[in-house]
């Protein structure tokens, strides 16, 4: 935006606007480049990268719920080497910072992937996926124990050439405790990942082959708003990129109001592939109409 009414600087990230697609909802960008110029985006959080290729879960992998959906994709991705040589190469043509989402079975996996992927010229930050609920060893074991999460963050920080954000799971007793633990080493926090859920068919059987899946979409927004509020209250300084059911400009304003620095759009990319550019334009119009000089003027106003 030429008026610079919503640009923001975060560790590793110079964002022209605070709107970016969330990991897992945007693949590696190529499909969406058929719909619009990816340069319009503040950043892109690419789909999780693991050391080796992952085939993902059996189908059905998705099921719609009221104002939301369950997914259990299972971190399907072509693996680190392929992503470095193909997906990230494709993204080099855009002037948009890439946040690489990293997942693994072991701390060593995270360290290895982080070390290599952070060398990519387009990757400006990492997002540690310690919260995927859909694979037994997809990171959730790192996302529910504060000490393990802290140690993982420390180890990745040692090798990463770019700032490290940690993506928090809402499926914990105290998300504040998790945030405080990773904040010892993390440059920022992204939150929230999906909530574990289940949907049955007309015969009373779970629809998803994985039985459970991660709930996302507008249905989870109140949960996400509260969690961002609680974490911001406990950690006034840490950068937070917030996500959880964002569908409208008003949703973005709400997350900024509870202290988020930037926001990510997940499920709604499937409902409307043009959602990100529409929200960026809408946000600019909102600020203009309400005579707000800069989006950051609204940050944290829920606390005042």
């Amino acid at each position: 935006m030429s008026k610079n009414n919503m640009n923001i600087s975060l560790p590793g990230l110079e964002l022209k606007n605070p709107v970016m697609p969330a990991s897992g909802c945007f693949s590696f960008g190529q499909e969406f480049s058929d719909f619009y110029d990816l340069n319009e985006l503040g950043a892109i959080m690419i789909k999780a990268t693991t050391l080796e290729e992952r085939k993902g879960n059996a189908t059905p992998r998705v099921a719609e719920t009221s104002s939301g959906m369950l997914n259990a994709i299972g971190l399907q991705n072509p693996g680190l080497e392929h992503i470095l040589n193909h997906e990230l190469k494709f993204l080099e043509q855009f002037d948009t910072p890439i946040i690489a989402n990293v997942a693994g079975y072991t701390i060593e996996d995270y360290v290895e992937v982080s070390k290599e992927i952070s060398k990519s010229p387009v990757v400006k930050a990492l997002e540690l996926n310690i919260s995927c609920p859909n694979v037994k060893e997809g990171g959730i074991q790192f996302g529910t124990d504060p000490e393990v999460a802290k140690e993982l963050t420390r180890r990745v920080k040692e090798v990463s050439e770019v700032p490290v954000y940690v993506k928090l799971s809402p499926n914990v007793t105290s998300i504040v405790e998790m945030a405080e633990a990773v904040a010892a080493y993390a440059d920022g926090i992204t939150m929230i990942n999906t909530l574990v859920g289940m949907r049955l068919d007309n015969f009373g059987k779970p629809i998803l082959a994985n039985l459970t899946g991660g709930l996302s979409g507008p249905a989870i927004k109140p949960v996400a708003i509260n969690m961002v509020y609680q974490v911001r209250k406990a950690l006034p300084e840490i950068p937070i990129i917030a996500m959880g059911g964002i569908a409208t400009v008003e949703d973005i304003i709400d997350f900024i109001s509870v202290g988020a620095d930037a926001v990510a759009i997940g499920t709604m990319n499937f409902t409307d592939p043009m959602i990100c550019p529409k929200l960026i334009k809408g946000l600019d119009e909102y600020l203009e109409k309400n005579n707000i000089a800069h989006l950051s003027d609204l940050k944290g106003r829920a606390f005042v």
């Binding site: 969406f32 189908t59 059905p60 992998r61 099921a63 629809i207 592939p273």
Partner: peptide, 23 residues
């Protein structure tokens, strides 16, 4: 036919297995 998410390749919901072992 398969349960579908986005419809244009971004969500990885509607994968199927090929007889040659690929997806």
């Amino acid at each position: 036919e398969e349960r579908m998410g986005c419809g244009f390749g971004a969500c990885y919901a509607c994968v199927c297995q090929k007889t040659d072992g690929t997806q």
